[in-house]
Design a protein around this nucleic acid. Structure first.
Lengths: 162, 162
DNA sequence: ACTGAAAGACACAGACT
DNA sequence: AGTCTGTGTCTTTCAGT
């Protein structure tokens, strides 16, 4: 039997837990009282269930989503990158650079021709050009870079439970 | 001078608004009292500023982010799709199908060879294969489909203000 | 694991500067 | 646009089942 840290007890989520998560996914600012009513419980167990799911890491974060265009981040670009070297150290250096760039809101390692897929936000094309040429391309060990522009957002959700 | 609906007054965001947004981005369940302390104001103006930013649509939604692996959505796939026909009606039919598929958590229209980029979540490879063959490929008018597997998440944030 | 009650903290509205 | 103050509501803890 594998040992587990006390912070990550792996009791499975029951139906009530999933209902609570569903409600929280849609509205992180919903009151515990309101959740309690919807799942037909009093506030105490709801409070405790949420606390445990936070502790176990099932709940990662409560975030507020903003309208990009209204905070001067109207342009979204998908950016594919391959490195010239694939040593662990070279990879870590790249990752560190990416972590520090606020414009990069997502970075995934992917299968296929490229090593990374980035999602980059900028105010407009000029700002993106500046980012691309003066910051992204300056990272050492960068190989091929390819930009794909996002013309429209059809769907964007964070629901992992439904 | 262009008319504006009263719901979307376009007064620019000042430094305090941006500070509030920054705090809310990191923690949607932060109390107004705590925000007020950090921006050196009383709760009333903070409350009012948030209310206005919600009304104007600057704040889109408060959401809870879950750990995919812990809610049986451990696999993430990027999926590129081109349609056979590009009429408006054909496009709308596709979009409607996508909206109804919970596995598709993101859908973007993109420049380049493909028409759409999807982000799909599934419990494992079997579940993804089932989704791909029996649901995605069954949408009428689907042309080319290409799947890229996400091997790791280096960075994932929703901060548009920093 | 839950209910119910009770204390303390907070949100929200009003009067005023 | 802001502070201050009061009221009602919610969170959070605890005793009890």
């Amino acid at each position: 039997m594998p040992k587990r840290s006390s912070k990550e007890e792996s009791t499975t989520l029951d139906k009530t837990d999933l209902e609570i998560l569903q409600l929280l996914q849609h509205n992180a600012r919903i009151t515990i009282k309101e959740i309690a009513e919807k799942v037909h419980l009093s506030t105490t167990p709801v409070h405790e269930r949420i606390r445990r799911m936070e502790e176990r890491g099932v709940i990662r974060q409560y975030v507020t989503l903003l309208d990009g265009a209204k905070v001067k981040k109207g342009l979204m670009v998908i950016c594919y990158i391959s490195l010239r070297q694939h040593s662990k150290m070279a990879g870590n250096k790249f990752i560190k650079s990416i972590q520090e760039m606020n414009e990069v809101i997502e970075c995934l390692t992917i299968s296929g021709e490229f090593d990374f897929m980035l999602k980059v936000v900028a105010e407009n094309m000029d700002a993106y050009y500046d980012f691309h040429v003066n910051r992204l391309s300056q990272i050492e060990n960068i190989g091929n870079v390819q930009s794909v522009f996002v013309m429209g957002v059809i769907k964007q959700t964070h629901q992992l439970v439904w």
